[in-house]
Design a protein around this nucleic acid. Structure first.
Length: 635
DNA sequence: TGGCCTTCTGGTTTGCCATT
DNA sequence: AATGGCAAACCAGAAGGCCA
């Protein structure tokens, strides 16, 4: 659909909008404020505010096509001209841009981009342009399938970075030809020589192809080895086996593959009797026992002719009703074995050999005197918890050693049970649950812990005081240095830093609002100036935290207040100290604003005709100008 | 072809809330 | 009560679309 003429560019008649290749071409209206300037620049008569000028007549820098946020470009749906932008390119009325002509719509649009003028070039006026170019609307036609013939001076090119590695270069006097995927591109000789990029064999990896490789670990994977029999030549392995075989009296011909070598000894419990057993008849037995004195009347002899067993026994019943049977068996003519309730015992400090009958009588006497080990009957030890490794056995409320000797020593316990008793007492101390006075122990522990806690608190207070003192000293040093450095800044910079510090001291309320923040009036005045110059910049500076700027409503209230107070600029803090040797960073801006205001006055601005008259409160000025007048009226 | 309307964008004003 | 902050409503200018 052909664009209507009134929407075409006033200068070239191009359509604007999107061309055939969907390349966006903006069309701008003539700003009212710039109409007079544009009429002077554009030689064609009849330019009105309703006229449209396409973007091809403006430099790229004058067109806002989007914004960059965090290094990412976000294009505007509608392009706009920057303030003060004027058309500079192809301003001749008779010229028609190649890609914008209605009758050359099929011409590729990319050519137009190559026909523009570089920024360093002067403004191209109509007289500098070719008088007649309509016959050859595009002097160089882009052929996407072939090479690009250049019939005229080419001003600039776009080099694709990703194409560089695959390019080869062919130098010539005038042009350098770039070959990329078949089609060749001509580049001017003015372009700097492009050094070929070394090809890297690794794909997409910046690693040198011959970088030596170092492994962190060395693994040797070996195949599974069969179970090899032990060779006889290996003495380290074979020796234990031989030893084992010898110890076990096993056949030496057998081959074994043992992991461990254990030596098994014969039991030592088998009594080795060197002397022959007592072999007496009744008469001989009577002769043997004659002359042996009994320790008491309970003792008596007994002899079994069949088994040739000669024993001397004693049955006694204790006061608690426990029967004890002590037996002395005559093994040989010089050895005896003692039994207690049928169990062989070997009490300490007793003899088991004798030479004379008197010595046998002494053995019986000693055996008679010795009392039976009663076991550990202490009530406090009945509930002691022991491990499985304990050598004691609990029978009812009586502890007894597994190796109880049967006969007590001096006390009522044998030596084994005596040891067990000590052990049980130790376990009782270790196990607090076995303690009767558990509550007492806990109280003692509690008191001990309280005392320890008190000591720790005292230490902590002492250390805290030390830490706080060190912190204060450190802070003092920091602030001294900080103050010294701040004083090196100019007053405006000091004000900014102080405002930042004040903002940092404010406790953020709900929603992180710094409602307790109080700005310096002078700082607020500067903020208002920034806001008046560019609201977008102000928002950016504030949102990004570049400067500690107040909210817009704050600025507005401040401005209103200053107006309501009868332009009392000093109270409103809008006046800069004229005696200040350092000029703040906005002085140049204020000067520019002042100049602009004066220009408006000279041009017959309806607000005022004289600068001094603008100070009069009767004259109603826009707030922004009023602020500027306030500032410079004092200066 | 000119004018009107819609849409988009940025700026301003207002009201409400929270904190000191 | 004073102050700061935020969000929504409102307004203005410019770009683009539509229509007689």
């Amino acid at each position: 659909m052909e664009k209507k003429a009134h929407k075409r560019c006033f200068i070239s008649g191009c359509c604007g909008k999107n061309d055939k290749e969907n390349t966006h071409v903006g069309v701008f209206s003539v700003p009212k404020a710039s109409l007079a300037i544009w009429q002077e620049i554009i030689p064609k008569d009849g330019l009105t505010t309703s006229s449209k000028i396409c973007s091809r007549h403006f430099e790229e820098a004058d067109i806002e096509k989007g914004r960059i946020i965090q290094d990412k470009f976000y294009p505007y749906a509608r392009w706009s001209l920057k303030p003060g932008a004027v058309p500079k390119l192809f301003l001749g009325s008779s010229i028609s841009l190649p890609s914008s002509l209605p009758n050359t719509k099929d011409a590729p649009q990319k050519c137009s981009s190559s026909k523009t003028v570089t920024k360093d070039s002067p403004i191209v006026l109509p007289r500098l342009l070719p008088k007649k170019t309509t016959d050859t609307p595009c002097s160089h036609v882009c052929d996407p399938n072939g090479s690009l013939p250049v019939n005229g001076p080419v001003t600039h090119y776009i080099l694709l970075q990703e194409s560089l590695p695959s390019l080869t270069f062919q130098n010539s006097n005038m042009n350098t030809q770039l070959i990329r995927n078949g089609p060749s591109l001509n580049t001017p000789s003015c372009l700097p020589p492009i050094s070929p990029i070394p090809l890297v064999q690794n794909h997409n990896v910046g690693v040198a192809p011959f970088t030596p490789i170092h492994f962190d670990h060395d693994y040797v994977v070996d195949t599974a080895r069969p179970n090899v029999p032990v060779e006889k030549g290996n003495s380290e392995i074979a020796a234990p086996q031989v030893q084992l075989q010898e110890s076990l009296s096993m056949s030496s011909s057998a081959v074994h593959d043992f992991d461990h070598c254990y030596g098994i000894r014969p039991s030592s419990s088998i009594p080795t009797v060197e002397e022959p057993y007592l072999d007496l008849d009744a008469v001989g037995c009577r002769d043997f026992i004659s002359g042996v004195r009994f320790p008491s009347a309970e003792w008596y002899w007994s002899f079994n002719e069949r088994t040739k067993l000669l024993i001397c026994s004693c049955h006694s019943i204790s006061h608690d009703g426990v029967m004890t049977i002590k037996t002395v068996r005559i093994l040989t003519k010089s050895k005896v074995e003692l039994f207690l309730n049928g169990k062989s015992i070997k009490p300490l400090h007793m003899k088991f050999e004798f030479q004379m009958k008197k010595e046998l009588s002494n053995i019986l006497e000693a055996f008679h005197i010795r009392k039976r080990c009663k076991g550990i009957v202490e009530e406090s030890l009945t509930d002691v918890k022991v491990t499985d490794k304990c050598a004691g056995i609990k029978d009812g409320n009586v502890w007894r050693s597994k190796e109880c000797l049967g006969l007590a020593n001096i006390n009522v316990l044998c030596s084994k049970c005596q040891l067990l008793k000590k052990y049980l007492r130790r376990m009782k101390k270790k196990d607090p649950t076995n303690s009767k006075d558990l509550k007492k122990n806990y109280k003692q522990k509690l008191n001990t812990s309280r005392k320890a806690l008190q000591r720790m608190k005292c230490k902590m207070e002492k250390y805290s005081a030390t830490i706080n003192q060190l912190r204060r000293e450190r802070q003092k040093l920091i602030w001294n240095d900080f103050d010294a450095r701040i004083k090196m800044l100019n007053p405006k910079e000091q004000l900014v830093v102080k405002t930042m510090i004040a903002k940092a001291k404010v406790n953020p309320g709900r929603n992180d609002r710094l409602t307790a923040m109080r700005y310096d009036p002078e700082f607020l005045a500067d903020c208002l100036l920034i806001k008046q110059k560019s609201s977008a910049v102000y928002k950016h500076l504030r949102s990004k935290g570049i400067l500690p700027l107040p909210s817009q409503s704050t600025l507005l209230r401040m401005a209103k207040k200053s107006n309501l107070e009868g332009l009392n600029t000093e109270e409103a803090g809008l006046v800069h100290d004229s005696d200040e040797p350092h000029q703040n960073t906005f002085d140049s801006d204020q000067l520019a604003s002042k100049n602009l205001l004066e220009e408006n006055i000279e041009n017959g601005s309806p607000e005022s005709t004289d600068f001094t008259e603008a100070m009069s409160p009767e004259i109603v000025l826009p707030e922004t100008e009023e602020m500027i007048v306030e500032i410079y009226s004092v200066e």
